[in-house]
């Protein structure tokens, strides 16, 4: 395990990484001690503890938030890999193929980035989150595949939003936001390809899907099916047709009067982890 490599890798996602230690000198002082006790220093556990200490107090469980993000990215990555291997994709237009390729490339990059960050923080990255083969086999047209792609991208946008606040106080928040807005670009593109408006609105053909509502259909746990902890489910999150933000009724509470459709479309809503992992949403599509 190369300590400098990890610092270097982590600095790519957290420019402030060295600042999180007591000081630069303290880091290199620690390295001096490591040299004296090299057997201990070589263990991932020691390095993990060092990083956890560096991030302690800035956020409750950064590794768990990143693991959750990695799960979503793995899930999307596998879905698009299946799309690219399908005959429906082979028959799609060059422009549509290029769009799928670019989106898949971003999901690959997100997976690599999150794996590096989790490893750097002393965690063991979630190994896989496959899209169910049997469900995929039922998507017999490219249009049907795009329908699921829209649901996954819009879920991703809601999911990142649901947990960004937990990363407040670290530069990991910035990275999460930088991934979040890319997912929103993907969602916009897929919607446009499907002939839908680029933003969530009540006129969507899929507006009634649970991805755009909220709540759970079954019992929830504070341990995800992937082993890491998730926040306890509280009450149902706002639905996407919500027109009240921060207790301000957008349609009538501002200077001008706005339609419910515009009010709902102007703000995307978050979903809690328990809702995303629920069988009615992404959770029901993960598996062999």
């Amino acid at each position: 395990m190369d300590f400098f490599k990890i610092i270097d890798d982590l600095s790519k996602v957290d420019a402030d990484v060295l600042g999180r230690f007591d000081s630069r000198r303290a880091v290199f002082g620690s390295l001096g001690n490591i040299a004296k006790r090299s057997a201990l220093a070589a263990t991932p556990l020691f390095l993990g503890a060092l990083f956890q200490k560096a991030y302690a107090g800035t956020t409750s469980t950064p590794v768990e938030v990143l693991q959750y993000a990695l799960t979503l990215e793995l899930f999307e990555q596998d879905f698009y890999a299946k799309v690219k291997a399908s005959s429906q994709y082979a028959g799609a237009s060059a422009a549509d193929k290029a769009a799928i390729d670019q989106i898949k490339g971003h999901e690959d990059a997100h997976v690599a980035l999150l794996r590096t960050a989790i490893t750097g923080l002393g965690g063991t990255p979630v190994a896989s989150a496959p899209f169910k083969s049997a469900v995929f086999a039922g998507l017999t047209t490219f249009a049907a595949q795009l329908g699921i792609a829209q649901l996954l991208e819009d879920t991703g946008v809601r999911a990142y939003k649901g947990r960004a606040g937990e990363l407040l106080g670290t530069d990991l928040l910035t990275v999460a936001l930088q991934i979040h807005s890319v997912e929103a670009r993907h969602a916009s593109k897929i919607r446009y390809m499907r002939g839908q408006k680029p933003w969530v609105n009540p006129g969507d053909d899929l507006a009634a899907h649970p991805v755009y509502t909220s709540g759970v259909t079954g019992p929830t746990s504070t341990t995800s099916p992937f082993g890491y902890g998730i926040p306890a489910y509280t009450a149902a999150s706002p639905v996407e047709s919500n027109t009240t933000q921060s207790n301000v009724p957008i349609t009538t509470g501002l200077g001008a009067t706005y339609t419910a459709a515009d009010a709902a479309a102007s703000f995307d809503e978050y979903l809690q982890a328990a809702e995303v992992l629920d069988a009615s949403r992404a959770g029901g599509l993960v598996g062999a």
Binding site: S181, V182, A184, R185, S188, W199, S266, F267, D268
Partner: peptide, 10 residues
Amino acid sequence: GQIVSVEARH
């Protein structure tokens, strides 16, 4: 976050 994703869609 609720606003920026709409900006990204735009």
